[in-house]
Design a protein around this nucleic acid. Structure first.
Lengths: 338, 338
DNA sequence: ATGAAAGCGCTAACAG
DNA sequence: CTGTTAGCGCTTTCAT
């Protein structure tokens, strides 16, 4: 058993044949005699030969690696997406390089460079909350590297993408509150430079309009995480706004608000009904359990990866871009129904 | 602006100089004249030249990439670890290839092969719940690829590792229950082939012994996830065991038990006090909030990566292996104190 | 059925 | 200060 790195050359040298023959024998090329194949494979096994994927990448200008840019890994939704990506990529023999943008534009740009430098065969992206300039993605397109956007897509950028129907989901979530008799419904909104932030707000507005509930801009507050939700909730209470419902852009925001309201003695859902968005591990364990939109992270990861692999492996790459819209269903729990 | 992939050759050809000069100019080699440098850099920028990291890897037998084997990404603790790894690696200019073992031995072995094939400069591993054979890691050692184990380490395997003192943390968690007057304390244990499973159980036993509480093997049940915890809790209730405390191997297990007990009308912490382990996002949002051991996932990721990078970059690699033990503090919340 | 040679993109020792 | 050459590990055409 030879230790360290065994190369094709080593095998060739030992067997007194040429590297090309070893290469062919290893991949069962028809030209090679059975004896040679046997000898080569035996030694390869004995010496624990493993092909150098780096050399292969260079030779074939194909790395069998896909890159993923993700805003934040520590997040039920996004980690579910990664899990879906990983599983599909693994089955197809692809590696996954993960880059976390940490919601920073600069880092997203750097990530993109890194992935291109490493000659990944394709890139999966969900843009950061900060991103408003998309030059780095045009760069990817110039390099003809396939790219699929998931969840947080770039508006008007012609590319493959997989999303959920955020507008409709938000609409149904808000409608659900209205159907349960709520009339003064707040919205804790996401950043409006993200399409999903806009869409979820629009869905909220649509439901209100449809029910002929007057829209009060003061009831729409930009708050998209636990801390901001706490502060926003406190502010709302201090201003003694009369509200009976809340639709939040994500679960953690909903939970931050819920806990703050509860601490002030407000009964959920009796006094204020709450609906979140994402349906991660959290929603089932709060008290009351949280009504939420199931965003199907794992599925989004698998679908996005399948789209990407299809574009990577298909002979002609210039077929039209696709947009897949996944189902997002409202999971009704205790926080919204008395 | 040339699209597609620009190489050093292209630049050299255009400027009618040799590739080596371009290469040197690009890295600001002192030998090269200022004019040449300027010309090269200008064209490189104009043509958006980006070095091919794959070619570099091959040349330098160094990929600037580290591999991570992680049991499950969708898990607050593990995703925190990844986040820590990512941040440190990124700052040091290293890429991160993530492989999920999904708690399967076979997949862990395959992951190891993949990472070696891709010539990663080092590997971070937390072993799967199934793993009892460690041959694949000896393989890594033969290849002289640095390796650091985090959290779930291999017993008696001589390697760098970063862990928390599971035994002590479990001991303190259990002692905390005892100090709050609990005497019939159950333990929902993790798989005993994992060191952390053993250690946490041993810590529990140590605290009981110290308090001269008789150990009842029937109160130790192997249950390490939400579902198993529900079933175990139901079984316990059906058998009408008299218990007043529970120490669970992780938070999700604690929460599964807590919810089941609550549904049967048992008051937490009044009738049964509960302590979990990990302290993720979940523990602060349950009702009552969950007392738990803070496992410092992010820090574990950063420390493990620093150890790995140190071994990768240090000239002599044969300095003694280190074991770093991180502090794990008990975060007391409502579930354990009346 | 096998070998020799070239080349993927880059760097570095050696020459001038 | 710059060019030539060789080689990282592998595949593949073209010879033989």
């Amino acid at each position: 058993m030879k230790s360290g790195l065994v190369t094709i050359k080593d095998l060739a040298h030992e067997l007194k044949i040429s590297p090309s023959t070893v290469s062919r024998a290893l991949k069962d090329h028809p030209d090679i005699s059975v004896e040679t194949k046997l000898a080569v494979n035996e030694l390869a096994k004995k010496w624990n030969y493993q092909p150098n994927a780096v050399a292969l990448s260079l030779k074939q200008s194909r790395s069998n690696t896909i890159g993923v840019i993700i805003p934040e890994i520590v997040h039920f939704f996004f980690s579910s997406v990664i899990s879906g990506i990983e599983d599909v990529a693994y089955d197809a023999g692809f590696n996954v390089i993960i880059c976390q943008s940490n919601e920073k534009y600069d880092r997203e740009v750097a990530n993109t460079r890194t992935l291109l430098a490493n000659r990944v065969d394709g890139i999966l992206v969900s843009i950061s909350k900060e991103t408003t300039d998309f030059g780095h993605f045009y760069n990817v397109r110039d390099r003809v590297v396939p790219m699929v956007f998931y969840d947080r897509v770039v508006p008007d950028f012609y590319a493959d993408q997989v999303i959920i129907d955020d507008l409709d989901a938000a609409y149904r979530a808000t409608k659900h509150l209205i159907e349960n008799g709520r009339k003064k419904i707040m919205h804790f909104a996401g950043p409006q430079n993200l399409l999903i932030g806009q869409q979820r707000k629009n869905g909220y507005l649509k439901a209100l309009k449809e029910a002929r509930i007057e829209i009060d801009e003061n009831l729409i507050i930009e708050a998209d995480n636990f801390e901001k939700a706490r502060l926003a909730a406190i502010k709302v209470l201090d201003e003694k706004k009369a509200i009976d419902g809340l639709f939040a852009v994500n679960d953690l925001t909903a939970i931050g608000a819920m806990q703050t309201l509860q601490k002030r003695g407000i009964k959920i859902p009796d006094e204020i009904a709450i609906v979140g968005f994402s349906d991660g591990r959290l929603s089932g364990i709060t008290n009351p359990t949280l009504t939420s939109v199931d965003q199907h992270g794992y599925e989004m990861g698998t679908v996005a990866t399948e789209m990407l692999l299809k574009r990577i492996t298909s002979a002609k790459k210039d077929y039209p871009f696709e947009t897949k819209v996944l189902n997002a269903n409202l999971i009704v729990r205790e926080s919204s129904v008395v």
